[in-house]
Design a protein around this nucleic acid. Structure first.
Length: 588
RNA sequence: GGUCCCGUAGCUCAACCGGAUAGAGCAGCGGAUUUCUAAUCCGCAGGUUGCAGGUUCGAGUCCUGCCGGGAUCGCCA
C-alpha cells in the first residue's frame, strides 16, 4: 500500500479543483502552481493546511472566500477528512479522520525501506565530488565537514533514485607535490643513514613521511641519491602521492567514507607530446570563441607586489555571469588551476554526468561563480553544477578554542578526532548544521551522554525502543516484531495524543526527505531525527505518569503500540543510516 | 574597492517552494521517578528576525540600499 501522506492530500485537492472547474465554479485553464498542502505550524490549525484559495484568487479574479467555500464543501465529502475550516486570509484547515493515522502507520510498516523514498532521480547519474584534499599528508579536522557533508548528500541522492558516483579529485599536479616529493627524498636520505638534522623550512616536517622514505630506500637502494633532482623527481613523486593517498583513504575509512572514483589532475596534462584533457578543453572553448588573449585589470584594494600588466589567455567567464574573465595560463606558460578544473568538469560531463555537485571549503567561495560559468560554457548549457560550501569548523575543548597552527604542523588530525569521540558523533555533528553556517565542535559536548548532545539523544531514542522490544519478548509469548506482521495489529487503538503526535511525525518523513534531496541538504534529516527522537522520549515519559499509556499492557493494545514503536524505530534507523550514523539497540 | 556567505531569544541554532501567533536546545525558574533504562519528561519566562525601503493577499525567506562579521579577489590549490 503506497500512502504518501502529503502527496495524497495534494492529489485530492487538485482533483477537487478540477471538479470545480468542470462545474464552472472556477474559470478553465487555471494555473495551479504554488497550490500546496502543508503541515501547519500550529496544531490548532488542524492536520493539513492548504493555500489554494489565496494562490488562485488573483488568477481566477475571485475573492479567496468564494474559492475556499466550495472547495471546502467538496473536501468535506472525502471519507478521510473530518472537518474543513476556512481560516485567516483564506487557508483551508483540514482535520482528518482518526483512521488516517492508522493507515499512515500501516504504510510505514508495510513499505519498510521504501517508505519516504521518492524517485526524483529516475536513475539519472549524478557526480558528487568531495574532500579532494591535497595529497600532502594526513587529513586534518578541517576536512571532516566536507567529507561527511558530501558523503551524506551522496547517500541522500542515492536513496532519491539517482545513480550516484562519489568522486575525489587528486590535486597531484601543483607545486606542492614537488615540495612533497622533496620532503620524501629527505626522508629517503635519512633512511639510508644520513644525518638530516632539522627539516628545512618550506618542506613538510611530518613523521608520516618517514616510512615513505624507508620504502624508497628498500626498493631503490642508494641509486636515487646519485641522481639529479630532475631525474629522481619523476620517480619519487608518484610513490609519494600513492603513499599519501593511502593515508587519506585510511582516514576516510575511519569515517566510513569510500569514494568510487579517484581522479588525477595530472592525468589531464599533456603527455609525451600528446594533448591532454586541459589542452582539449581549451580547444573546445576556442571553438566556441570563448577564450581570447587579453589584459586583466589589477584587483582593486591591495595591489599584489609582483603585479605585471600583461596579455594572457582568458576565458570569457563574464558571458556566463562571472564578474571578470578568468586566466587560463600563468606567466610561466603553465595552465592555471582553473584551466585544469575546467578540463576535469568537462571530463565528468563526458562520462555522463550532466548533474554535478562539488563540496568545497569556505575558502573557495570566491571560486563558485567562475566554475559554474565554466561548466555552463563547456557543456553547451547541458551540464549543471551545484556547489555546496562548508563553513569553518571551530574546535572547542570545554568551551575553549583549540589552537592550531598549520605553519608548525600543530593541527588536530581527523584520525585524532575520530579516535577521541568516535565516528558517529563526528558525522552527526557535522550534519547538525546547515553547510553554509559556521560550526562549533566541542569535544566535551559530543561525548556527553545527555540531551545536550543530539547524537546521543537520537541514538538513545532508538535504543529505548529496543529495550521495550526486549522486555516485550520476555513478557509476551510468541510476540511478533517484524513489520508486515505488526502492520496487521489493530492500529486504530492508538488514540493518545502522544501516540498520534508520533504518527504525525512519521507522516512528515516523505515530505521532509523529498525536500532534503531536492535542495541537497542532508542536515534537514538530522534535525528531523532530533524532533522524532523528542516525540519518542516524550511519549515514553507519558507512560510514567499514566501507567495505562505504557507500551506493554496485559491486553490487545500492546501489539498496536509495538507497531508504533516499530515504525518509529524504522524511520529513525533509516534516517540514521542515511547519515551514516549507527542506530544502536542498546546504549553502552 | 568588487564578489560570495552570514546576521533570528542572554548563548548555540532551526524554520521544508514565500504561509497564519517565528520554533528547539542550553543557561534561569517551578515540577514529575513503587519504571518498559530519570542518560528522560512537563510547565513558566525569554523576540522590532542588524537597519531602512520595495514586491506580495501574506516576507526571517524574494528585490534595492545601508550597518556589522567572515571568506575571497593573477602566477596557492
Amino acid at each position: 500500500m503506497i500512502f504518501n501522506f502529503f502527496n495524497h492530500f495534494d492529489e485530492i485537492v487538485k482533483v477537487e479543483l478540477q471538479n470545480l472547474t468542470d462545474e464552472g465554479v472556477l474559470p478553465p485553464g487555471l494555473d495551479l502552481s504554488g497550490v500546496t498542502v502543508e503541515p501547519p505550524r500550529d496544531a490548532a490549525h488542524g492536520d493539513i493546511a492548504c493555500n489554494a484559495a489565496m494562490v488562485l484568487a488573483k488568477r481566477a479574479s475571485m475573492a479567496p472566500r468564494d474559492i475556499a467555500a466550495p472547495l471546502a464543501e467538496r473536501l468535506k465529502s472525502n471519507a478521510d477528512i473530518f472537518e474543513v475550516e476556512i481560516a485567516g486570509p483564506g487557508f483551508l484547515n483540514l482535520k482528518l479522520e482518526a483512521s488516517v493515522w492508522a493507515r499512515v502507520l500501516a504504510a510505514v510498516l508495510n513499505q519498510g525501506d521504501s517508505y519516504g523514498a521518492v524517485d526524483l532521480g529516475r536513475g539519472e547519474k549524478v557526480n558528487v565530488e568531495f574532500v579532494s584534499a591535497n595529497p600532502t599528508g594526513p587529513m586534518h579536522v578541517g576536512h571532516c565537514r566536507g567529507a561527511v557533508v558530501g558523503d551524506a548528500l551522496a547517500s541522500l541522492l542515492a536513496r532519491a533514485g539517482y545513480d550516484v558516483t562519489r568522486e575525489y579529485y587528486i590535486n597531484d599536479a601543483g607545486a606542492q607535490i614537488d615540495v612533497l616529493a622533496r620532503s620524501v627524498f629527505l626522508r629517503y636520505r635519512q633512511a639510508l643513514g644520513e644525518e638530516i638534522g632539522e627539516i628545512p623550512a618550506g618542506l613538510y616536517p611530518g613523521d608520516y613521511l618517514v616510512p615513505v622514505g624507508k620504502a624508497l630506500a628498500q626498493t631503490h637502494g642508494e641509486a636515487l641519491s646519485a641522481m639529479d633532482e630532475a631525474e629522481w623527481l619523476p620517480i619519487v613523486r608518484p610513490v609519494a602521492i600513492d603513499a599519501m593517498m593511502a593515508i587519506i583513504r585510511t582516514d576516510l575509512a575511519r569515517l566510513h567514507i569510500r569514494h568510487d572514483v579517484f581522479f588525477s589532475e595530472r592525468s589531464l596534462m599533456d603527455q609525451d607530446g600528446q594533448p591532454g584533457g586541459i589542452s582539449k578543453a581549451i580547444e573546445v572553448l576556442e571553438a566556441a570563441d570563448l577564450v581570447y588573449e587579453g589584459r586583466l585589470p589589477p584587483p582593486k584594494g591591495q595591489l599584489p607586489e609582483d603585479w605585471e600588466d600583461r596579455e594572457q589567455l582568458l576565458f570569457r567567464a563574464t558571458q556566463f555571469g562571472d564578474d571578470v574573465d578568468r586566466p587560463l595560463r600563468k606567466s610561466d606558460g603553465a595552465h592555471t588551476y582553473f584551466a585544469a578544473d575546467i578540463a576535469y568538469h568537462l571530463d565528468k560531463f563526458q562520462r555522463g554526468f550532466a548533474n554535478q555537485i562539488d563540496v568545497w571549503g569556505a575558502d573557495h567561495g570566491g571560486y563558485v561563480k567562475r566554475m559554474k560559468a565554466a561548466v555552463t560554457a563547456i557543456t553547451g548549457g547541458k551540464g549543471q553544477l551545484d556547489v555546496k560550501i562548508c563553513q569553518l569548523v571551530r574546535l572547542l575543548r570545554a568551551g575553549e578554542p583549540v589552537k592550531m597552527s598549520k605553519r608548525t604542523g600543530d593541527f588536530v588530525t581527523l584520525a585524532e578526532v575520530v579516535e577521541e569521540v568516535g565516528a558517529d558523533p563526528v558525522r552527526f555533528m557535522m550534519l547538525y548544521r546547515k553547510n553554509d553556517a559556521p560550526l562549533d565542535f566541542d569535544f566535551a559536548k559530543v561525548t556527553e551522554q545527555s540531551r545536550d548532545n543530539p547524537v546521543f539523544y537520537v541514538q538513545y531514542a532508538h535504543a529505548r525502543i529496543h529495550s521495550v522490544f526486549r522486555q516485550a519478548a520476555e513478557v509476551i509469548d510468541g510476540v511478533a516484531f517484524d513489520m508486515p506482521q505488526l502492520a496487521g495489529a489493530e492500529l486504530s487503538r492508538l488514540t493518545d495524543k502522544g501516540e498520534i503526535q508520533l504518527i504525525r511525525r512519521l507522516a512528515l518523513y516523505p515530505r521532509l526527505f523529498e525536500g532534503a534531496a531536492r535542495n541537497h541538504e542532508a542536515h534537514r534529516v538530522a534535525f528531523y531525527l532530533y524532533d522524532l527522537a523528542a516525540d519518542i522520549h516524550s511519549l515514553w515519559t507519558r507512560g510514567k505518569e499514566l501507567p495505562q499509556l505504557r507500551f506493554i499492557q496485559p491486553y490487545e493494545i500492546t501489539h498496536a503500540r509495538l507497531a508504533l514503536l516499530r515504525g518509529a524505530a524504522h524511520v529513525l534507523g533509516s534516517g540514521l543510516s542515511l547519515l551514516g550514523v549507527a542506530a544502536p539497540e542498546e546504549m553502552v
